[in-house]
């Protein structure tokens, strides 16, 4: 038991690692501030492109979406960070993370938006268009607001996933929370800093997960 506490709940090591982790947390939050809006906007763009009248636009879009949903985000990230330099493009870790996340999360957010927009009955379109609003105005003022409200649980759920996903940035030496924790681990030969990082992730995300749970079960009832 003592060994367990010493390995996983070593308060002294956690105390020492805390400042380092705090800086890492700052970087994590910075990453989130960058990739979440990118994903939300990118997803909306993807959803709109998929509604295009022209097959020549839609089909390549579908193919790309399926491609970026099929490849694990970590693979995409490593490809961009370690693979592109071979053709002369050397992105910084931050840029690599942003691009990988944009490509991956836009697909998922796009699917969510699409389901939301599809769930709005034709009657809404017809009513808005018959008062003279054009397609964009209808989308902006009538359709998308309702769609977002319908899929809000899914949007929140996906955003939680994106925040968790920032931890893979540690693999390309982006100094976010997990990277800092792993660094502290290798310096102290003790995994307690990572446990502390886990606690910080929990503090950040547990309220969202609880909220999501309640929303999901309320809908089911």
């Amino acid at each position: 038991m003592e060994l367990f506490v010493d390995q996983f709940l070593n308060l002294e090591i956690m105390r020492q690692a805390f400042p380092l982790l705090l800086r890492g947390l700052g970087m994590t939050l910075l990453l989130c501030l960058a990739v979440v809006p990118l994903g939300l906007v990118g997803g909306l763009a993807v959803a709109l492109i998929c509604r295009s009248r022209w097959r020549a636009v839609r089909w390549p879009a579908y193919a790309l979406i399926d491609f970026f949903r099929a490849v694990p985000p970590l693979v995409l990230l490593i490809f961009i960070y370690a693979g592109l330099p071979f053709v002369g493009i050397r992105p910084s870790p931050f840029v690599a993370v942003c691009v990988a996340f944009l490509l991956n999360t836009s697909s998922y957010y796009g699917e969510i938006y699409r389901a939301g927009i599809d769930s709005i009955g034709r009657g809404q379109w017809e009513a808005a268009r018959s008062t003279g609003l054009n397609v964009f105005q209808t989308l902006a003022w009538v359709i998308v607001p309702q769609a977002v409200r319908n899929v809000l649980p899914d949007l929140i759920s996906n955003t939680v996933e994106v925040v968790k996903l920032t931890s893979i940035a540690s693999v390309v030496a982006m100094p976010e929370l997990l990277y800092a924790a792993d660094m502290a681990r290798s310096l102290t030969y003790n995994p307690s800093p990572i446990v502390l990082a886990a606690a910080i992730y929990l503090a950040l995300l547990w309220p969202c997960v609880r909220l999501l749970s309640r929303m999901e079960h309320k809908v089911a009832r």
Binding site: V160, K164, S167, I168, R185, I194, V209
Partner: peptide, 17 residues
């Protein structure tokens, strides 16, 4: 709530010890 990578690293580095 936890990123899987975090749990993996805790298990991988901690359990042997």
């Amino acid at each position: 709530a936890l990123p899987p990578l975090v749990i993996i690293l805790i298990a991988y580095f901690g359990l042997p010890n």
